[in-house]
Write a protein that binds this DNA or RNA. Structure first.
Length: 565
RNA sequence: GACUUGGUAGCUCAGCUGGUAGAGCAUUUCACUUUUAAUGAAGGGGUCCUGGGUUCGAAUCCCAGCCAGGUCACCA
């Protein structure tokens, strides 16, 4: 196994050896007695105070017998001052001349003990008395510098590298780290809001025999011991409602969901939703609850209800505007969907240039119309209410209009952020709706829902009137941190695997060479040409096969080896 | 899936109509005891994404592929 090392990596590995030769363990086991963080040092600066800090070395400015460096810990950066005679009190100046100046690199974890002081230029700093190596870094970090005008130089910006090596991104780009701090603040704020309201956080299965609760393509997997297919959940709705049946008043879950669909700027195969169900409530109550919730969350994350998203200024201050879907379509197209037949809707769509096809039922047509003509116009948080029945198979029929459901979606900057219902709790109606879905799926809709008989059985025992809400957490944090791409708010967005260069042994290369000259050799002939031992031959062929470089074609008694392109 | 832009040193990037591969930072060596994009001097470092093709000659032109970004389509 030979790994190609860059010059800088080689030098760092050599430093490792030299440190050990000096009796310094570059990866010591013992705890380091940190007693303060850099932010606290700067916020409550006390000249002469003794401190013990640890972190990464982020820069070195050596000026002969004294140096300045920057230490970065979880809370920020602080300048440290290292004077040769302060850290080497005796005759032996090795610790300064060799260890600090030559063997410590940017990126290394070090610990320092020292006293606080202010430099001539006024920078709050630590005068180091003792320095310890805590962990050596073998790869060079990107060096990002900021000049006195605040301009950033050589920023680590390549999106692919940033996502694949998020750890580097986080070390080097503070604004990236800050996004994730805000993400956690959002979850904490929401959790606190629900807990204060008396609702209970629960966990439900991720591996499900029937992937229900949303119209989406699932990932499929297989359980060996049970020998059955299992699906990764696309939503947790049906399980949370079972818990309402079981007698809880309010349950919620932050759920990782998985959808086997396309990926783009706003879709990752795994994403996080929050779903909450509250008994004895309806969607009107839920709208008020939602706007209060989001106002609370925005304030906790950003300290204000205002947020900037691209060119838009949005305000999470409650209350939010409420517009029925019918009214939204009238507002932006002049067309009234009320009482129209499927045929009338289809021709209306066509006349407005909305793409439709034969598999679309009434609900889907209205959805297309809304999606195409209205959705993008709602910039400020707006509740779109009263969706057509056909596209909401888990939602209760509207109390005033049997064509509609008691459903709302919250739109922000033209994107759906939340979705809520007065939940359907009539088991007979529920079974009919599932059967409607089945018909849709027979018509060609590959996202129509499966029938979940156990869920219907649960409803047959009785579920109180309940309102449920789902929030796309990734989308919400995008709005709260002004990011247009979901990848920026996920620590580890999905990426295609990095392909690694295949390293072949000489023996394997030799076989390839033979095949290049004379492809399709009978396998016995090939073996005798190579003149390899049985063991070497076997190993080489297995490796080549694994990498898909060769293929053995069997026809009857003869086996022929073929080079693969 | 379509279109489009990109992939060159550890990082950020330049490299024209094809002619031996460049800069800044980082790194190495030397100097320098309050600097802060520290400074000054000298050096080293490359699978120009991969594979074909055209050509006397390809980082550059052509074809195919891989990876990524963007736009659009699909999609709660």
């Amino acid at each position: 196994m030979s790994i190609q090392l860059s010059e800088q990596e080689t030098i760092r590995r050599e430093a490792l050896v030299k440190l050990r030769a000096l009796g310094i363990n570059p990866f010591p086991a013992a705890l380091f007695p940190v007693n303060i963080q850099s932010k606290e040092v700067k916020d409550n600066f006390q000249e002469g105070k003794e401190v013990v800090l640890a972190g990464r070395l982020m820069s070195k400015r050596i000026m002969g017998k004294a140096s300045f460096a920057e230490l970065k810990d979880a809370s920020g950066r602080i300048q440290i001052y290292i004077n040769r005679d302060e850290i080497c009190v005796g005759e032996d100046k090795t610790l300064y001349n060799e260890v600090f100046k030559k063997l410590l690199d940017i990126g290394d974890f070090i610990g320092v003990k020292g006293v606080l002081f202010t430099t001539q230029v006024g920078e709050k700093s630590v005068k180091v008395k003792e320095i310890s190596v805590l962990s050596k870094s073998l790869r060079p970090l990107p060096i990002v510098k900021t000049d006195d005008e605040g301009k950033v130089h050589d920023a680590f910006t390549d999106a692919e590298q940033r996502y694949r090596q998020r750890y580097v991104d986080l070390v080097v780009n503070d604004e990236v780290k800050n996004i994730f701090i805000k993400r956690t603040k959002l979850f904490n704020a929401m959790r606190q809001f629900f807990n204060d309201a008396g609702y209970m956080e629960v966990e439900t299965p991720i591996l499900q025999a029937i992937p229900g609760g949303a119209a989406a393509k699932p990932f499929i997997t297989h359980h060996n011991a049970l020998d059955i297919p299992l699906y990764m959940r696309v939503a947790n709705e049906l399980y949370l409602k079972r818990l309402i049946v079981g007698g809880f008043d309010g349950v919620y879950e932050f759920s990782k969901n998985f959808r086997n669909e396309g990926m783009d700027r706003t879709h990752n195969p795994e994403f996080t939703a929050m779903e909450i169900y509250v008994a004895y409530k309806d969607y009107n109550w839920m709208m008020e609850f939602t706007e209060k919730l989001l106002e609370h969350c925005a304030t906790n994350v950003n300290g204000t209800t205002q947020a900037t998203f691209g060119e838009h200024q949005i305000d999470f201050k409650a209350p939010y505007k409420r517009v029925t879907m019918r009214q939204a379509i009238i507002d932006f197209t002049g067309f009234d969907i009320e009482g129209k037949s499927e045929q009338e809707l289809r021709s209306a769509c066509l006349s407005m240039g909305v793409e439709v096809d034969e598999t679309m039922g009434k609900g889907k047509l209205i959805d297309e119309l809304f999606g195409d003509k209205c959705e993008n116009n709602y910039i400020q948080p707006t509740f779109i209410i009263d969706y057509p029945k056909e596209m909401s198979p888990l939602c209760k029929e509207h109390r005033d209009n049997p064509e509609l459901t008691e459903r709302f979606e919250l739109m922000i900057c033209g994107k759906e952020v939340a979705n809520a219902y007065s939940e359907l709790n009539d088991p007979i109606d529920q079974r009919n709706r599932f059967e409607e879905q089945l018909k849709l799926s027979e018509k060609g809709d590959d996202e129509a829902m499966f029938i979940d008989n156990d869920f219907i059985r649960a409803l047959e025992y009785g579920m109180p009137p309940t309102s449920g809400l789902g929030i796309g957490m990734d989308r919400l944090i995008m709005f709260l941190t002004n990011n247009q791409s979901i990848q920026e708010v996920l620590f580890f967005p999905q990426m295609k695997p990095e392909k690694k260069a295949i390293e072949l042994s000489d023996v394997e290369k030799a076989i390839i060479e033979i095949l290049k000259i004379n492809n399709r050799i009978e396998i016995g002939a090939l073996k005798s040409t190579t003149a390899l031992s049985g063991k070497q031959w076997d190993k080489a062929m297995k490796t080549l096969n694994q990498h898909g470089l060769i293929k053995v074609e069997v026809s009857g008694e003869t086996k022929v080896c073929v080079l693969q392109e």
